[in-house]
């Protein structure tokens, strides 16, 4: 009996009375995030090997990892020097946006930091200050990267729309271009459902009804609130699709598969 005595009162890493499979979710999140972000990290610098091409020649089918193409303009000839990759553009918007996202924080604090691994399961850390101290206090900068991420939304749409046009062939439609549009849509929804955006458009108000301006903001806030309920869904679907589109376009660009489309050329 002596050992059982303290059981409900004992604290410590992984200590829990739960006997459901609480570890499934954090394990799945760990594997999926590692896989997806691992691939994307590789993709940023990958101009070699069997998947080295990230743009289908003669078309506007460009991996979304390389959108927008500002850096390409000044740095078109980066081949062989990975540290000059134009895809590093993602470091000013999408990467920090996701890194400081309220949903992803929940996901990685649980799955990577194990703080806590699951509800009512013992925390790994011997002491804990959360986001009240450096470095995690920097999470408060989420709103700034959100502003930048907002700029990426139209840029990705422009890239996606451009992909429906093939130089010399005219307008058409193909699986690759549809996927790019889907990617732009999901990225938009992920951005528009952001908690910081929700605060920005109206959450900071105490009175919604006080003026025409606040009433208008309330209407926008209602929409963002609605989308915000699905923030987790948008976070995962946009992540899954950008990886899928990147893989797809690389497969087409490297000749492994053919993109079914109305141009019937590649």
């Amino acid at each position: 009996m002596a050992q059982a005595v303290a059981a409900p009162l004992r604290r410590g890493f992984l200590t829990t009375l739960r006997h459901d499979r609480w570890w499934v979710e954090p394990a799945l999140v760990f594997v999926s995030l590692s896989l997806f972000f691992g691939w994307l990290t590789a993709s940023i610098v990958m101009d070699w090997g069997p998947f080295g091409n990230y743009e289908v020649e003669g078309t506007h089918l460009l991996s979304p990892v390389f959108e927008p193409t500002w850096l390409t303009a000044i740095n078109a000839d980066w081949k062989g020097a990975w540290y000059l990759s134009p895809a590093f553009i993602v470091l000013i918007g999408p990467v920090p946006f996701r890194a400081t996202c309220y949903y992803y924080r929940r996901a990685y604090y649980r799955s990577y930091f194990l703080s806590p691994p699951a509800c009512a399961v013992g925390d790994v850390a011997p002491s804990y200050r959360g986001e009240s101290r450096f470095p995690l206090i920097m999470q408060n900068a989420h709103r700034y990267v959100m502003y930048v991420a907002l700029v990426f939304v139209p840029l990705l749409w422009i890239g996606a729309i451009r992909s429906f046009h093939v130089p010399g062939e005219g307008w058409g439609i193909g699986i690759g271009s549809v996927l790019l549009a889907l990617n732009a849509f999901l990225l938009m929804m992920y951005t528009f459902s952001c908690h910081s955006l929700r605060h920005f458009v109206g959450g900071g108000l105490n009175c919604f009804s006080c003026s025409a301006w606040t009433r208008a903001r309330k209407r926008v806030w209602d929409y963002v609130s609605l989308w915000n309920e699905g923030h987790r869904f948008w976070a995962w679907s946009s992540l899954l699709v950008i990886v899928a589109v990147d893989v797809y376009i690389r497969l087409v660009a490297n000749g492994q598969i053919t993109d079914p489309n109305t141009w019937s050329r590649f």
Partner: peptide, 25 residues
């Protein structure tokens, strides 16, 4: 600032208050 928004409070709330999304964040 101590809260790292792991949302367990929301999961257990018997009144289904969206504690994390609507109050803490």
């Amino acid at each position: 600032g101590y809260c790292n928004i792991t949302k367990c409070c929301t999961e257990v709330c018997p009144e289904n208050i969206h504690i994390t999304d609507n109050a803490i964040i």
